[in-house]
Every structure is written in C-alpha cells, then in structure tokens.
Design a protein around this nucleic acid. Structure first.
Lengths: 366, 366
DNA sequence: TCCCGAAGTTCGATTTAAATG
DNA sequence: GCATTTAAATCGAACTTCGGG
C-alpha cells in the first residue's frame, strides 16, 4: 500500500502539498494548476488510497455508523435495512451491522461494541422490548447521535425517531373491513408490552366508536410473545373457532405473520379465505404478497423509514462536523392500505359467518 | 475519552507499562502482581478503552471483516448472516455489511469500498451472477482472505468456499416424489446461468436414470430471471396447465420462491395441494414453513453455512496474524429433505392427474 | 506583501531499545 | 547479570506554522 510520503517523493514535493491538493484545502489555492494536475494524476497511477486508520485517528471519526436491528431474519428489518443502505451508500458511509436477535443481553453487548468502535452515529431498529429510554442513557455519554426506528421517544436531545402512525393504521384497517360490510369482526391484538400494539388498538377503537361498531371482548385475543409467529396466529384462530357459537366474518390481526397463520388456520378448518372469512394484517412483508391467498394489509413504508432514518443521522453527523448545532427530528410516516385477495365483501349468499360455518361442518363431519 | 497516558499518570507509571500489563505482554512478566492489579483496577475505574483507530493504525488491522450478500431482503441471505454473526460475535469481530442488491455495479463498488476500509477479510454470499473468478482477482492484490458461500471456486489460494451438495439435493428431491408414487412429474428448472441450477438438474437426472423414470421435455420449463420470484412460479405452472392434455401429479421446483408461486397457481386453477398435485421446493426459507399449505422442501443448512464460513475466515486471519501459513478450505454441506404438507402419495382414488383434472374442470365450467 | 511549499507536530497505542537500582 | 521500568520511535494523514523568493 502506497503512503502519502511515497507519493510525495514521486511527485517531487512534500506530503503536506499532496495532502492539501488531494483534499482541496484552501491552502492549496495558490498552487499552480499544472502542479495539482500532476499530483492528482500520479496519485491515480500509483493507486494511492489514504489510510483510513490514520485518517480516523487524526479526525477522531470512523466514517462508519452502527446499525442494530432486533432480528435480521425478520423481513420487516431487512427492508428498513435496504433503505438505510441506499442512503448511506450514496454518502460513502459504511455501516457495521449488529443483530440483537430479540435478546436484551445481546442488545446491550452490541451497543457496547458499537461505542467501543467509535461509530459516528447509530441507528436502532427497535421492537419495543429493547428501547426504553434507560437503554439509551449510556449512549449519551460519548454524545453519539442516534436515530430510533419504530419507537416513539421524545425528549432526548441527541435522539431522532422515525415511526409510522400506528393509530391511523389501526383505524384504516378496521375501516377497510367495515366498508366491505363486515360487522362481526374478531381481533387478534399484539402484546400489550409493545407500544405499537396499544396505538393500533386505540385507532381501532376510534373507528369503532365513530362507526358505532361494537367490539366483542369474546372475539378479542391478545398475543403474548415477541416476536410474533404465524404459529400463534394459527392457534389464536383455532381457539376462536372452538369458542363455539361465536360468529365473525373477518379477522383483524396484529401483523402479517399473525395474519398468515390465521389464514392457514382457517384453511385447515375447511374455511376459505375470503369467501368464508376475510383476514387483514399489518406491515406488508414480502410473504404477504405471495401468500396463498395474497394478504390484504396495512403497509408500513419500510424502505422510506430506513431512508429517512439514515438521512436524519447523516444530517446530524454532518452538522456536528461543521460545528453547526445539530437538530433532532421526529418523523411520522403514514401507513396505507394494500388490498389483495384475503379480504372481500360479505356476500348476500354468505348466510353464515365463519364461526357458524365451522360449527356446521363439524357437526356434518360427525 | 481517557487515553493510555492519562491512565499511566494516574497509575504513577509510564504508558509502556500500562500497555504491556493490559495486553499481557511477555515483557510484563517481571512486574509485581500487585502493580499489575492496581493498573488493571484503575483502568476499569477510569473506564479506559483503547482507541481502536490508534490500534488499527499501529497493527495495520481493522479488527473488522466485510460481508457482502447479494440481496439482503432474500431470506436465504439473512439466515446465513445470522450464522456469520454468531461466530464473529463470539470472536469480538465486527463486520461491515454490504448489499449488492443483485447488481453487478454495486457489487464492484462495494468490493472497492471494503478494500478501501481495509477489512481483515471478507465473506461473499454469492449468487452465481456475481462471482466469476475474475471478480475476485482484484481482491488478490492486497491479499485479503475471502470466503465465498454458495459458489464452487477452486484454485485461488486465498479463497475458501462453503457450498452445499446441490447434486445430492436434486437427487433426494426427486427421490422423495418417486417414493410417494409419483411417476408423472413436471420440472421447473432454475436459470442455466446459475451453477446451482445445473448441478441440481444433474442430480435429478441421476435419480431418474437409476429409477428408470422418464423426464418429459414438455413438462420441463426453465426460469430465466435472477432473482427468482413466486410470480414466475405462478406463471410457469399456469403455462404447464394450459399445455392441455399433459398429465402430471407433482411439480419439482427450482427453489422455494418458485414452489410457493406454483402452489398458488394450482390453487387459483382450482387444484388442491397435495391432493391433486404435490409440490416440492428447495432452500427451506421461513415462508416454506408457514405457507398455506406448508411446503415440503430440500433444506440448505443456512445457519451452518454462515458459521462455517465465518470460522474458516477467522482461522485464516488468525493464522496470518501468527505468521503460520494459512489454509484455505472447501466445505461441502449436505442438504436434507424436510417433509411438510405440500407433498403426498398418489392416491388410488386419484384417477386423474393434475393436468387432466384441470382440463376436466375447464370443460365443466364452460 | 503576496505566493508557494515544506518542516514539524498531532492523534493514541504499541514496541524496541535502553536505562535504572 | 538480573529484575523492573521507560524514553523514544513507529504507524500515516492532516494541519499549523514558518521561511524563502
């Protein structure tokens, strides 16, 4: 690897001159254009690449940010990551990836690791288990700027946030089912420990109130585990069906994974989606698009969330570099409904709702 | 941030002493145990953390490896990544993640970027578009050790590989269908440009020959695009069904994404899986497990592939550090069949095979 | 005074060579 | 000669300061 001194020798000048020229410093302003051109040319010829270790040491910057996701195998995370990558790439900033694997100890270890490596900033893709403000206190010490995705978090003067309007998401999900004529709807709520879940439920409540729709407690289940899995959705819908005479013509699930399990549960019980029962999810993960049948869902703009987060972080870091005062931002993105084939109107022909149909078939089988 | 000199002052000794003690250098051997203990204790109290920039500059190592995947939104990649993460984490090595996004220019840019950042080694999760040996030539120049996952590549003395036995995979996939009684089988091959695809096809051919099974050219389609999508699987099976009087009772798809599309295509054509037609995939991505119905597939041990790759890289890097001669390795992992619900026996009652059934229904509808 | 360029210092940890009692 | 410690050099880029024309 060629150093700046070797390059300087070849150019017949000093290292300072080379440095100033290649970095377009003000001091290089009076150096003749021909000299500059020669230096640049020789630099290319010799494939000179400034040693990033030396640069980092000098500038006290790593030119690297840290990104921690709560679960890299979760497609929600990977699309956010794609958004982050797009922005960072454009700014020639590389990133260290850390995966918390839904595990608090790992989360803490990773955080430690990122700080030890002196990242210029960090992005946390959070499920709510992990990012209570307390966790971030240790981040404050070296004043590393942070952007948190997916978790409301105000009042920390070094932390920006990017979230979606979960309240609105819950609202439009129920609205969609209502518009299709559904009045008897089962709900599979997310764990109460998750902030998203609470907000979505409030949005659902708001629409119900406005539409004068009654939410039956008996058709409302609550998931307990994070992460959610399709297996839980499957179990949930089975217990709903076993609840007996209950009737419902649609299921509103906390998220896509749950919803996919619900669809499978209905299929296995001999019910067809959406003919016998509609199902709606939340997120719009890839699998929603290619499921059998494809899932209607409330879409989180994951790519944009990642891009916004990366932009916010870069702005903050660059501002700090130029000694301007950096501003935290709190962005709220709007979700949108994506209508596919898992929801449909309540047919006139559809005399019986899902629960009843199931009952009927069961008796028929026996 | 406290430096080693500040720490030394507090300890009443020189920076050299502190350095030697904290790093357990041989020279520290005669330093009294009490002194050492004091130094260590004060280091903890002052929260001393060696500046990694300075360490890197001195040692000419980044203590960081680069990992490039071909598509971070592909679940195949994320499980491999999880395996890599597990091993690297245990060795306190962080990694820079790069995503080629199935794009050759990005691949090259990222490679450049990794080298510029002087990673200690790199892992490439390759689809075959990208890793012809020529690409790796530029890696050789700075003698950076490489591990390639998913692509056979011998003869480069700095590159290890981790692959699965694709030939065997194809063999056992067909064997599974054959054992269930299927004799009339449709094939959706992968693109010929992908090495995996060719090898799997050879394995299929081998079993067919041994079992004296005829592979009909008319029931064999070939995908052209990378990445594969479920949409292509759907299209493929539709064109198979439209081919008319053709009869087949099972479909062997190139990979899971394709297979999932096939299942949906069959469903949309009114055929039930596996009653009317069995479907088998390849990979065992998450979605295979929660699909409707769950997919029988040939499993690639992705977690292990990642772990093996990371281990191989660490071994190589550490060997180089200790000036032992580093060894490249070429690991071949065995795939295994995962039987779920998308395959079943050919029923005696199943008078007609999928193609015929479809024909029958079509006429019935008209 | 203005233009051009170089010598020398800094960043922080590690290591070599050498110096103490 | 031995146990114990340290001053000084090193890694490479960037910037401050200074000097010659």
């Amino acid at each position: 690897m060629v150093t700046i001194r070797e390059l300087a020798k070849k150019c017949g000048c000093s290292a300072s001159t080379v440095s100033m020229v290649l970095n377009n410093r003000p001091l290089a302003r009076y150096i003749p254009a021909t000299t500059k051109a020669t230096i640049r040319q020789i630099a290319v010829e010799m494939k000179y690449q400034p040693n990033i270790f030396a640069q980092s040491l000098r500038a006290n910057r790593s030119y690297t940010v840290g990104v921690m996701v709560f679960d890299i195998t979760d497609p929600y995370c990977t699309y956010i990551l794609r958004g982050i990558e797009n922005k960072l790439n454009a700014a020639s900033i590389a990133y260290l990836l850390f995966d918390a694997q839904n595990n608090r100890e790992r989360f803490d270890r990773n955080l430690e690791s990122m700080l030890q490596r002196r990242v210029d900033g960090l992005i946390l893709v959070a499920n709510s288990l992990q990012t209570d403000p307390a966790v971030l206190e240790k981040v404050e010490i070296p004043h590393v700027p942070v952007v948190v995705i997916g978790r409301e978090l105000r009042g920390l003067e070094f932390a920006s946030t990017v979230v979606i309007n979960n309240h609105r998401g819950g609202y439009i999900a129920l609205e969609h089912l209502y518009t299709l004529g559904h009045r008897e709807i089962a709900f599979i709520r997310g764990p109460k420990t998750i902030a998203d879940s609470v907000l979505r439920w409030e949005g659902i409540g708001k629409f119900a109130k406005e539409a004068n729709l009654k939410i039956s407690r008996e058709w409302t289940l609550e998931l307990v585990e994070v992460p959610t899995t399709s297996a839980e959705g499957l179990e949930a819908v089975k217990s709903l069906l076993h609840a007996g005479r209950r009737r419902f013509s649609a299921v509103l699930a906390f998220d896509d994974m749950t919803a996919l399990g619900v669809i499978r549960g209905l299929s296995e019980a001999g019910l067809e989606v959406p003919r016998d029962c509609s199902v709606i999810g939340f997120d719009d993960i890839d699998a929603a698009g290619y499921y059998n049948p494809p899932l209607t869902t409330v879409r989180q703009p994951m790519l944009r969330m990642g891009e916004e987060a990366a932009s916010a972080l870069l702005d903050y870091v660059n501002a700090g570099q130029k000694k301007r005062k950096a501003q935290v931002v709190h962005r709220v993105l709007e979700p949108e409904i994506v209508v596919r084939r898992s929801t449909g109107p309540v047919h006139k022909a559809q005399k019986k709702t899902a629960g009843q149909l199931h009952e009927a078939r069961k008796s028929g089988e026996q």
